[in-house]
Simulated scan of single mutants.
Amino acid sequence: MASNSLWAQQANAKEADSLTENSKQSKKRNVAILIHNGVEILDFAGPSEVFASTEGFNVYTVSLTKEPIISQGFIKITPSYSLTDCPKPDIVVLPGGDTGPFIKNKLLIDWIKQSATQAEVLLSVCTGAGLLAKAGLLDGKQATTFHSYIEPLQRATPKAEILANTRFVDNGQIITTAGVSAGIDGALHVVSKLKGLGIAQQTARYMEYDKWKPEEGLVVEHK
């Protein structure tokens, strides 16, 4: 009887471990896509498409408030959340566009800093890198951005090295991309990093995005 009881305990333990592992695998990562007045359409739409088309991600938009924002002068979007009620993100996407006024917004910069203490990945697209720089998250790192913003960002961030002709730069938690369509490449890289190259390739194939070349990015090795 004792051996049967031990066997039952071991079987129950294995079943519990299996359920725990399945739960971990099925848990969706929260992906917060920041939007703001003047945000570049493809900067946020490209990564949104990637994550929303890949199993395992819960994608939502977040802005300073829940008031509608205007993208590039003609698309009105109502954010899902404001900074104050946004679910805790595992991945934060910071698109570019007219980011100048928002780099000076203390509430937003503080939210980015706070998110960086817990999120797996912060991904900037285009001039969204300026938000990471203002939060001090590019110091000591290599990064990239929209081609016409490289010199201004370098001047604003002397402790970082801003690279030209680089589709994306992966520093581990902090990933920056070049402009506009490069956000798609960066998001696919994040999918590859978290879920495997095969899954990322399936997403790219679904999107019929033939441009993606993983080797065009720089992955910084940390010692």
Rank of each mutant, 00 (worst) to 15 (best):
P47C: 09
D139M: 05
T176G: 07
T84M: 12
I77R: 09
T99M: 04
D110K: 10
E215T: 11
T20R: 15
K24Q: 13
P95G: 07
I35W: 00
I77K: 07
P89W: 03
L137N: 02
C86R: 02
V50Q: 00
K106E: 12
G100N: 14
I112Q: 00
T54I: 02
D139L: 05
I70F: 07
L64M: 10
I77W: 03
L42S: 05
E221S: 13
K159Q: 13
A164C: 07
G38R: 02
V62E: 00
Q173G: 07
K211D: 11
T203I: 03
L108H: 05
R205A: 14
A178G: 11
A16F: 08
S80H: 13
K213Q: 15
S63E: 02
E221M: 09
P95E: 06
A204Q: 01
P158R: 02
E161M: 07
Q9A: 14
L132W: 01
L194R: 04
N105H: 11
M1N: 12
I109E: 03
A135S: 13
V219P: 04
G179C: 09
S23L: 12
V180A: 08
K159W: 00
K28A: 13
T157G: 01
K211Q: 14
K27T: 12
N30C: 06
K223W: 11
S148P: 00
A200C: 08
F102C: 04
K213A: 11
Y206R: 07
A8F: 13
E208K: 09
E49Q: 14
F57K: 00
Q142I: 04
H189S: 08
V125S: 08
L19T: 10
S18C: 10
I184H: 01
T20N: 12
N4Q: 14
Y81V: 07
I35F: 02
T145Q: 03
N12M: 13
K211C: 08
A133D: 05
I77N: 06
